[in-house]
Amino acid sequence: MSLLEVDDLTVTYRTAGGDVPAVRGVSFALEAGQKLGLAGESGCGKSTMALALLRLLPRTARYTGEIRFDGEDILTMSWGRLRAVRWAGASIVFQGAMHSLNAVQRIGAQIAEPIRLHSKATEAEIRRRTGELLEHVGLPARRADAYPHELSGGQRQRVMIAMALACDPKLIVADEPTTALDVMIQAQILTLIESLVAEQGISLLMISHDLSVLADTCDRLAVMYAGRIVEEGPAAAVFGDARHPYGRALAAAFPRIGDPASRRRPQGLAGDPPDPADLPSGCTFHPRCPARLDHCDKLDPRLWPAGDDARAACVHVLPDKGLSLVAKESA
């Protein structure tokens, strides 16, 4: 049994202007100790996914499908059980460099808060554990008395990581953990996350717009577009040999280390991601697709095996380019 199994998850925001589907049928599994990277442009639904995993979305969000964490369905469990799973089972590293820490509380108190909530530790034990956690992420224990604004962006991110480790969770969801940090600090934070999850056997779901960052850190990668996973497979395969044109474009947008040609010509992708409230017909990527075929606006392909242990949702990986499916549908 996998640690985390997401099965046909949809998330729809109910707004005054009608329903907006942010996540449209996502399925994936994450084994214990595995690291999965979730990539995509802003607005593709990846942050909605992260928050949905612990049912943290605002009340306007409606969920269908299943999120099985450690054998229990997050979407149907009671509030009390859900609060127990939050942080103790799975914790989240938010973009701590920005506003994810409470500005008027000392960081020590903020790290101690979940420990006090989820364990029966005494105050002395909690204080010792808070100091240990800070030292674990490379900060002196006496910084527990500091307020968030007294720390640099990288230090605040370290605090977020210490906080995520506080209750020994089985899964850490890292939502854009290095965005808004400069490149040197980014590398430090990534190394820190990698070593900590490896050391403690924690599963990692890392979300980023930066495919190269994910490819460095994760075992497997999934690429999201317009609320769906369009490509999924081993990190090297997705980053080096993507089968979906969007996956290829995303990989080409970042220069590859050690490959001068890609550094001189990073390639972008024209156009904007579609408005979730007004999606194109057929394959949602077809208006921007450099390899589109005539029937791409009619057929909406689901994930299909594409190479070794990988899947892609594109007509190009379907047998006879999906033409028979189109014929069957129009008949």
Partner: peptide, 24 residues
């Protein structure tokens, strides 16, 4: 964002409100 953090920690809504949102 820090309110989402507080909720993600598993705090009850009323504690999130009293300890985090209202003081700010």
């Amino acid at each position: 964002d820090y309110i989402v953090t507080a909720r993600a920690k598993g705090l009850r809504d009323i504690i999130v409100r009293r300890r985090h949102a209202v003081p700010n």
